[in-house]
Write a protein that binds this DNA or RNA. Structure first.
Lengths: 77, 77
DNA sequence: ATGCTATGTAGCATTAATGCAACATAATGA
DNA sequence: TCATTATGTTGCATTAATGCTACATAGCAT
C-alpha cells in the first residue's frame, strides 16, 4: 500500500490486453484512465487503486485475482 | 479511483470479519495496517489500495471479488 | 520521405489513502 | 466502581496514484 512501498503487486495486464488485441489507449479508454497510467501499471512502476483494478479486470473480462497478485505469476499462464 | 471520487467501492469487510470472530484490531494486525484504516473501509469512507484489498482478502480467506465490488452487494450473502 | 500509431521517459500538480494521536462512548467483566 | 475492549470521530502529516504535457523512438503504411 502507500505506506508499504516495498510491497509490490504483480500483474498480467499486458498479457491480457494484447491477447484481446487492445492497445494501451484502448484499454485506458475502457477503464476511464489516462493511457500512460496503463503503461505505468504494466511496467509495475506502481500498483493501482482497487477501483482501477476492478475496472481493468472488467475491461479485460478477467477476475482481479487472475490479473493481480501479491506473488509473482508463474511463466506462461 | 483517486481522480474519480464519485465512484465508490462497496465491500463486505465487516460481514466477513465478524463471521470469523475478529475485531478490527485483529484484522488490522493480520493485514498490517492501522486499526482505524479498517474502520474507514468498513464505513466506506474511502476505498483501499489494491495491495491492501489483496491483503484483507487473504486475511479473511476470501476472493477480492467476494469482498469488494463496484456495484452494491445484495442483501444476505 | 512523410505521417501515424504505439510505446517509453521525465516532470509537475492534485488528491486520496494511510498512519497516528487524542478523545468520546458503550458494553462487559472483575 | 474501575478497567478493558471495541468502536466512532476529528484532525493533521506524508506519500503514492493519477492526470497531463511534452518529447523521443521505433515500426508500419502510404
Amino acid at each position: 500500500m502507500s505506506r508499504n512501498p516495498e510491497e509490490p503487486v504483480y500483474n498480467r495486464i499486458e498479457e491480457a490486453r494484447t491477447a484481446l488485441g487492445l492497445s494501451r489507449q484502448d484499454l485506458a479508454d475502457k477503464a476511464g484512465v489516462h493511457y500512460q497510467t496503463i503503461g505505468y501499471l504494466e511496467r509495475e512502476e506502481y500498483s493501482p487503486s482497487l477501483v482501477l483494478a476492478l475496472r481493468i479486470a472488467k475491461s479485460l473480462n478477467q477476475e482481479v485475482s487472475q490479473l493481480f497478485s501479491l506473488n509473482p505469476f508463474k511463466k506462461g499462464k
